[in-house]
């Protein structure tokens, strides 16, 4: 969108992905089989959906810590709906909407109470992860529905997982929304300079509520895919590293934690990189205790690069950035009056 005449920004990260694939393909020939490639994509789907939604929030210089918890909420809500003999469409929709509701709640709280996003979404992480436990008394609820099962386990033409198609469809829609619509440009503007965006007539309340709702909705969809793959609403799904993998995927893919910079294709590639590494290590029989360590290092490197890049470009001191990140969403009126 910004540099149509130049090389796309995602080129660098895409080459890194190709590099990782080639290396993994060389050391473990099993990695590069068609079925394994789709397997990697399928395994990355849930994280990728979270990362796509998180990208919107990160672009406005916010953060959404509740997405992992929404995975469980959405799955359990759908499972409960099946338990109440509702049709699969309704059950799925209710699961997704439970995510939207958490996102909407986040957006409203963050915008109107000025509680910093980090704290507000940490609180809703607690809320969203409790509800499924309360609903189920921590017992997973099985889902027996063939159509629903196909969302996460079905294949088109026998090879292409349906979940991967859903992911790609979402990515295309979100990418177009972000690059071709007024809303998308407003997202970049809000993250790039919140006060300037407000003075340019952008409705910040709408922006805050929209991006967190998008994030929550995609997390809800991620929860549906996960529940379908597991065949049950699992009350502790997503309580592990999902959240951090999702944020890492976005950041590895070039979405800046400081707002205003990043793309959907980037976040998608980031998610596939994280997924490939996990899969590659499985194929190579890397002890599973080591895997988070390796992924942790990859994330650290990516964030370090992002920080250096950002601080160079804007010549902002890192301390200031951190201080800003801890500030409430909109301190504009205060700062303006303080002058």
């Amino acid at each position: 969108m910004f540099n149509q005449r130049r090389v796309p920004k995602e080129t660098g990260i895409f080459l890194i992905l190709i590099g990782i694939i080639i290396v993994l393909g060389l050391v473990a020939p099993a990695f590069l089989t068609v079925s394994n490639v789709f397997n990697v994509l399928l395994n990355s789907t849930t994280i990728a959906l979270l990362a796509l939604g998180e990208t919107f929030v990160l672009l406005t210089a916010g953060i959404d810590l509740s997405v992992g918890a929404v995975l469980a909420l959405s799955g359990v809500v759908a499972a409960e709906a099946f338990g109440a003999h509702l049709p699969w469409e309704i059950a799925t929709l209710l699961g997704i909407l439970s995510g939207s509701a958490i996102g909407l709640f986040n957006g409203i709280v963050i915008h109107f109470t000025k509680v910093p996003p980090f704290i507000a979404t940490f609180a809703s992480l607690g809320i969203a992860s409790s509800i499924p436990l309360i609903l189920t008394s921590a017992v997973p609820i099985g889902i027996q529905n063939n159509v629903f099962q196909d969302i996460g386990q079905g294949f088109l033409f026998g090879v292409v997982p349906i979940a991967v198609l859903i992911l790609l469809l979402m990515a295309v829609i979100l990418h177009l929304g972000l690059t071709m619509s007024r809303f998308g440009i407003h997202v970049y503007a809000t993250g790039g300079n919140r006060e300037a965006a407000r003075l340019a007539g952008i409705n910040l309340a709408k922006m805050d509520i929209a991006v967190y709702t998008i994030s929550g909705t995609l997390a809800g969809l991620g929860g549906i895919v996960l529940a379908s793959r597991l065949g049950s609403g699992y009350p502790t799904a997503g309580s592990g590293t999902s959240l951090f993998e999702a944020i890492s995927a976005a950041v590895v893919g070039g979405v800046s934690l400081f707002g205003g910079v990043g793309t959907i294709p980037g976040a998608l590639i980031g998610a596939v990189i994280i997924g490939s590494l996990a899969d590659g290590m499985n194929i190579l029989n890397v002890n599973s205790y080591w895997q988070p360590l390796v992924i942790g290092l990859v994330i650290l490197i990516a964030v370090t690069i992002d920080t250096i890049r950002t601080s160079r470009r804007r010549s902002v001191r890192i301390t200031k950035v951190v201080a800003d990140a801890m500030k409430p969403a909109e301190s504009s009126r205060e700062t303006m009056n303080a002058k």
Binding site: F2, Y188, A189, G192, N193, E195, R198, R313, R314, S332
Partner: peptide, 15 residues
């Protein structure tokens, strides 16, 4: 509070 530093001249102008 005037402009969005990372956005292009064109987008800043039409924001």
């Amino acid at each position: 509070d005037g402009f969005i530093p990372g956005l292009s001249v064109a987008l800043n102008m039409v924001l």
